[in-house]
Amino acid sequence: MKIEKPRRFVAAFYIVTLAFALIFCTFNMVYDTIGRATGSVETVQYDFTTLTANDGVVVNGANDATTQGEDPQLLIENLATRPVEVRFDITFSENPGEVTLYYKKAGEEYSNTKKIYGKAQSDGTYIFTLPSLAKIDAIRVDPTNISNVTMHLNSFTLNAKRSAASYFAFSYSDIFAFLVYPALASAIAAWFINAFGQTKPRHFC
């Protein structure tokens, strides 16, 4: 088989990718809406005193803390609700380096395969969107990997209310991935079709 109309062939990859992306976004929205309606997803506010801090964080009050050592951690071990998104508005005394979040099932260790990097917003808020289908029993936030940073926490919200549009907002990374991957996949698929596809239907009898 030879690809007769490469333009349509590539376009098909883009359309399928876009369709999957939209289905995925819609699913997330519906799943969260149902979760909120049934009470399995709730909005919870935290501060330094209600989060469990490891010894890398010296808590000086509900909203102020200082890091010591390069592995400060803030943990939510007993999640009362299904986590969808974590967002916190925080001011650091210096560039915080890596702002990351880990998640795990009960009985597991935190690992690099279940790690999310915060999306920094222009107002200083960090947003972490958690995978919707993963079973998550505990969350760990590493606010920085720098020692001796003072942090002022303006807010820390688990499952903040989201607008419907926010489920469909594509980031620049998404756009980049959308530009690159379908094209690359179609090029590879075309090679296999050209190389191994048959020019005539094979007759078995």
């Binding site: 920094a120 917003q121 990374s173």
Partner: peptide, 13 residues
């Protein structure tokens, strides 16, 4: 490289 730590999607901060 993470997209959000390079030209693709760097944070404004």
């Amino acid at each position: 490289m993470l997209p959000q730590l390079c030209v693709i999607d760097y944070p404004d901060v």
